[in-house]
């Protein structure tokens, strides 16, 4: 069974996967970051999400190896720090990835660094595209003399450039949305981190 979802917030991702797994299925794979594949099972599974920055190959091997020694199955995650690391296991009482506050806070910090960095990057780009948004068709289509062309010549040039023209407009819509989503994830992580820091 496939479920289509896209998460920027790993806390929500983890919660959602575990809720799904409480209903008699288990996560087997995540493709393209939005196709969550579940299979039916009578057994219990618990999933935990981590985030790691770029790891070289040998570090990545260590990362995988140590978790597997503890019974975790690697469901998703590469070594380039682009997406979260998703780990599943059958619950046996040691069902957390982090056993002290410091290491859990470090996980939150790593993720906040990533979302914060991306948010700034997207924000700069969003401001850029909004300020310089080509409102006039002549600024979206860049083919010289396009609007003076006639008949088949016009349509050929127009259709040829259309995908590029759309790409010039799309960022103006997409990037502010991305900034908002990233900032929400950042805010939630920061809240979770503060709660942890206040404990004890």
């Amino acid at each position: 069974m496939n479920k289509y979802k896209f998460f920027i917030d790993p806390l929500k991702e983890e919660q959602w996967i575990n809720e799904m797994q409480n209903e008699g299925c288990r996560l087997t794979d995540i493709s393209l970051d939005f196709i969550y594949k579940f299979e039916e099972t009578a057994e219990d599974y618990v999933t935990r999400v981590d985030f790691q920055e770029y790891m070289n190959e040998s570090k990545f091997e260590e990362y995988i190896s140590i978790h597997e020694e503890f019974g975790w199955e690697h469901i998703r995650g590469g070594r380039f720090g682009a997406m979260t690391q998703v780990w599943s296991k059958k619950p046996d009482g040691n069902d957390e990835l982090f056993s002290d506050r410091e290491s859990k806070i470090n996980y939150y910090k790593r993720y906040m660094k990533m979302t914060g960095g991306l948010a700034v990057l997207f924000l700069v780009y969003a401001i850029y595209v909004m300020l310089f948004l080509p409102y006039k068709p002549g600024m979206i289509f860049l083919t010289p003399g396009l609007w003076d062309m006639q008949g088949i010549d016009f349509w050929r040039a127009f259709l040829f450039e259309l995908p590029f023209a759309l790409m010039r407009v799309l960022p103006a819509i997409l990037f502010p949305v991305m900034v908002a989503l990233l900032l929400i994830a950042y805010y939630r992580m920061n809240k979770a981190k503060k709660e942890l820091e206040l404990e004890n």
Binding site: H67, N94, L97, S99, N106, Y107
Partner: peptide
């Protein structure tokens, strides 16, 4: 009781 992620870190 060290968990996997904490140990790796």
């Amino acid at each position: 009781n060290i968990a996997a992620g904490t140990l790796y870190g």
